[in-house]
């Protein structure tokens, strides 16, 4: 179903004018002009999509995850298509914090939307260092902590898979900035709401979910994994039901705003996430399929709100009918 078809068949009575709904949302102190953003790692630094999307129309742009030092990333092949989804193992390839400051941040000078920097690290200190260094730049509006990478400090454990590690990391990074902190959760856990609670206790302003689900695929001819890294992260429509369920669970457990993502291909998907409890949504894999998806989603959400007589986007959030 396309964004357009959401409003098909709707006709307004005489003298009846649809009121333009208010799209602004507040994500833990971060004021967004609308609830649609792009997911980290699927939109580069924004400029790669400039020919297709006026990024200033988005609620926010989230960068590829930045680490303190340069990371060369994993051995190719790095992406592979699976049923209604894709596997990726990029390994957080990026040029590091200093390069971001020297060569990238300046490009956002005239940005007319919010810039959220995704931050990764191997130790808690690295996260705190990046956040503290970038807080000084007025271009940066908020941080998203990508805590789904292995943490060397705790013997290669994934932070987001452990309550205690999540709590400690968020606490430490909290001290490094006054800007809104969004904690990005991993779906590879038994109880995601428990981790979300730890993030809340640590001082997070919002949570975003989900990151990719761990997966793999094998080429039976060579008996090799299709990915250089052997395993990778699954994203796209295949994971949407799982992601949606997790948003609903987290929404029921904590009080922080949620940024929902995982397989959003169109406005209907996005509306589902909002009904389940997401205050904002992020478009990821769909950017590869159609670079304009994020703007189509935005338009479709607005149409939906109009059609269903919502005056604001926030009214829709968590409005699941459980009767």
């Amino acid at each position: 179903m396309t964004a357009r078809s959401l409003t098909q068949g709707r006709s307004y009575g005489e003298g009846e004018h649809p009121v333009k709904p208010r799209l602004e949302v507040n994500i833990g102190g971060l004021e967004l002009k609308n609830p649609v953003m792009v997911a980290s790692g699927t939109f580069g630094y924004g400029d790669e999509f400039a020919d297709y999307v006026d990024i200033n129309k988005l609620g926010a742009v989230v960068t590829k995850t930045i680490t303190k030092s340069r990371r060369q990333g994993t051995r190719p092949p790095r992406v592979y298509e699976t049923a209604a989804g894709m596997l990726n193992a990029i390994g957080l390839q990026n040029n590091g914090l200093q390069d971001f400051i020297d060569n990238k941040i300046g490009k956002y000078k005239n940005l007319k939307t919010k810039l959220i920097v995704s931050v990764g690290g191997e130790t808690n200190e690295e996260y705190a260092d990046i956040v503290s260094a970038l807080s000084a730049y007025k271009e940066v509006s908020a941080f998203e902590l990508n805590i789904s990478c292995p943490n060397i400090e705790y013997k290669d454990k994934i932070i987001a898979c452990d309550e205690g590690l999540t709590l400690r990391l968020v606490k430490e990074v909290r001290r490094a900035t006054r800007l809104p902190l969004i904690v990005k959760l991993s779906p590879n856990v038994t109880d995601i709401a428990q981790i979300a609670q730890a993030a809340q206790e640590g001082g997070a302003d919002a949570v975003s979910l989900v990151n990719t689900l761990l997966g793999m695929a094998i080429d039976v001819k060579s008996r090799k994994s299709v990915l250089g890294n052997i395993t990778g992260g699954l994203s796209g429509p295949a994971i949407k039901p799982v992601a949606l369920r997790m948003v609903w669970q987290v929404h029921n457990r904590i009080n922080l705003p949620i940024i929902g993502m995982g397989g959003i291909m169109n406005a209907r998907d996005a509306v589902e996430f909002m009904i389940a409890g997401a205050s904002a949504v992020a478009v990821g894999t769909a950017n590869f399929v159609e670079p304009k998806t994020s703007l189509e989603v935005l338009e479709g959400i607005s149409d939906y709100l109009c059609e269903h007589r919502f005056k604001t986007a926030s009214e829709l959030v968590g409005s699941l009918n459980v009767s």
Binding site: G44, E48, Y52, P76, R78, M86, N88, N287, F288
Partner: peptide, 16 residues
Amino acid sequence: EFMGCGLGACLGCVIR
């Protein structure tokens, strides 16, 4: 190489 975005954004199609 297999590709994701085709636009240089996802770093999925690299060669050393």
